[in-house]
Amino acid sequence: MESLAVQASRVGRSFRTGFWMAKKTVALDDVTFDLAPGRTLGLVGPNGSGKSTLLRLLAGVDRPSTGSIHLFGSSTPEETSIKRRLAFLPDGQPFPAELRAIDALHLIASLKGMPRSERRTRVPAMLERVGLGDRARTRLGAFSRGMHRRFGLGQAFLTEPDLILLDEPTAGLDAPGFDVLNGVLQEARGRGATVILASHVASDLVEHCSQLMLLAGGRVLRRGSPDELLGDGQTLELRVRGSSPEAFASLEESLTRAATSAGASVVTARMARRSLLDLYAETAKDEAHR
């Protein structure tokens, strides 16, 4: 069995800031955690809690001021052999704006060491996969934020990495973009990849993560499964499908009575809404019929 995918021990990162470089800003302080291969960890926390810094350290873009990080055993993130097994989606839009999407992806694939013959097939296929097939020859500078995010996902999943680090992957994504993210993450999990995602909105990550880690002020405050961290132990969610509005009204009345007799109360009861993705799909189907 392979050793831990990620092992971070007492990791700290501080920066000197200010005009005289005299002020010390601590971005991460004494962070220790590990992650087994094939697991998905969500980093949650408010802005400035150190999520992005931790991902940059794990990606080998930056080095810790204190402590150590080991990936897949004893290797550090800076080692070339490890970088071949790693994918990183940084926050923001750091890709070369003057290149067309297809050229930029070719460049990134080339820097990742992908042979030309493989690039020729995989690059256009990945652009199709993230929904940018018809924008392959558009310059990245002309992309919207959501399209940039899709491109970022495309470059991260271009190879078949063993460790995937995604910083705010849902930021700016539209509903079809969420679908793309779900698809690539499912595929990655299916082949046993380890995934670490960061978001300041926990609800973005819950569906994907087997574990959540709460960061604040550069420190790890809590870690556990989404149910452990987010479940309140006092509210039951029940979703019922496939009946008429009259039957739903009767069911709601019965449930309210049953809850009252059990010493509880119904907090919310309303007709569920479709997802935006379903709405887009339905509208597209209507447009096609016209």
Binding site: R56, A59, G60, V61, T80, P90, I108, K112, G113
Partner: peptide
Amino acid sequence: TGEGDWLGTAPVP
């Protein structure tokens, strides 16, 4: 200032 992050993960020295 961050634009090189995508380069930083490339397995090129």
